[in-house]
């Protein structure tokens, strides 16, 4: 197995996911099959090849720095699962 039991749990922790033992086992099997499949890429010599992160030549567009319309506080809060008039409410972070 390319991904051991400890590794799958540390990946889950990084991704903020919880996996039951059964789920973890199934995920290891699935990921393993996929990683074995992608091993075929090793047969391609890419020593001299530049990586493509993006197909476009991206430039950062600049614009004038002026105040424009944006979401109101009400609109921004409307979808929050818990909120009061001005803030989103989450479990206590600082004791």
């Amino acid at each position: 197995m390319k991904i051991d039991a400890e590794r799958i749990q540390s990946l889950a922790a990084l991704a903020r996911l919880e996996l039951s033992e059964q789920e973890a086992k199934a995920m290891r099997d699935d990921l393993d099959a996929i990683l074995v499949y992608v091993e075929q890429l090793d047969s391609v010599d890419t020593e001299e090849v530049e990586p493509t992160a993006h197909v476009l030549e991206l430039a950062t567009p600049l614009r004038e720095d002026r105040v424009r319309g944006t979401l109101s506080v009400d609109e921004a809060l409307r979808n929050a699962p818990a909120h009061d008039d001005a803030s989103i409410i989450v479990p206590k972070v600082i004791e």
Binding site: R16, A80, P81, I88, P91
Partner: peptide, 21 residues
């Protein structure tokens, strides 16, 4: 936090994990 489904939890980190799971 900001939108969508939220699972109830005691701590913020637990909320993230349970919400996503």
């Amino acid at each position: 936090v900001k939108f969508g489904y939220r699972a109830e939890a005691e701590t913020l980190d637990e909320m993230y994990r349970r919400t996503r799971s």
